[in-house]
């Protein structure tokens, strides 16, 4: 564990929490893409199957359980409790365009042809593009509430910090995971345009439009 990894994980945790709190406090999930949230839940469900087979650390186990519960909790709030506020007309990104290529890629480019390993690879590839329905929704409606912007920023910062963590780990431990690094870079790049708008607009108190 290094500082980049820790802050990255905390940023991820923070992103999920502000999203849940936003929905809970405003009793509304307007502006949030349910499709991205389903993809994230699928990412966690396929990546954290090793909860049942391997123990890594208490930190690792607790974080995984938190991510799983909170992502399914978000889906429950969006599709059941505050269903009426879900902006489905603007949430129209075709997720099969992500799921199918990601499934094929994970079957071809993986560390080992093994069920757990392939599902892990699938989750890494899927995570890198899972935010696209949300970004698509923001571009379609032409704006995002500040809180949604903070959520996106924290979520993007998490993977960016992981890249610093991988550079650090490469020099200190010789650790290098090509699949995670490439997918992590793709994931971070997808947020770049948003980061720019966030810094130039949202931090100056303007709405993201």
């Amino acid at each position: 564990m290094n500082i980049f990894r820790l802050i990255g994980d905390l940023s991820h945790l923070f992103a999920i929490l502000i999203l849940l709190l936003k929905i809970w406090k405003t009793r509304s999930c307007a502006g949030i893409s349910g499709r991205s949230q389903i993809l994230f839940a699928l990412v966690f469900a396929t990546r954290y199957l090793d909860l049942f087979t391997h123990f890594i650390s208490l930190y690792n186990t607790l974080m995984k359980i938190f991510y799983l519960c909170s992502s399914f909790g978000t889906i429950y709030l969006m599709y059941v409790k505050f269903k009426a506020t879900y902006d489905r007309n603007h949430d129209t990104f075709r997720v099969e365009f992500l799921l199918i290529p990601v499934a094929i890629l994970s079957l071809i480019f993986n560390h080992e042809f093994d069920v757990l390993e392939i599902l892990w690879t699938f989750s890494i590839y899927l995570e890198s593009v899972a935010i696209l329905p949300q970004l698509f929704m923001v571009s379609k409606t032409g704006e995002a509430e500040s809180i949604t912007s903070h959520y996106l920023f924290a979520l993007g910062a998490y993977r960016g910090l992981y890249i610093l963590n991988w550079i650090y780990r490469y020099y200190t431990e010789g650790f290098f995971d090509l699949i995670a690094v490439i997918a992590g870079i793709v994931q971070t790049v997808l947020y770049c345009d948003f980061f720019y708008l966030y810094i130039t607009k949202v931090l100056k108190g303007k709405r993201l439009t």
Binding site: R5, H111, E112, D114
Partner: peptide
């Protein structure tokens, strides 16, 4: 048989 590569990252 190769051992499963532990994933310590989230």
């Amino acid at each position: 048989e190769k051992q499963y590569q532990l994933k310590d990252e989230l």
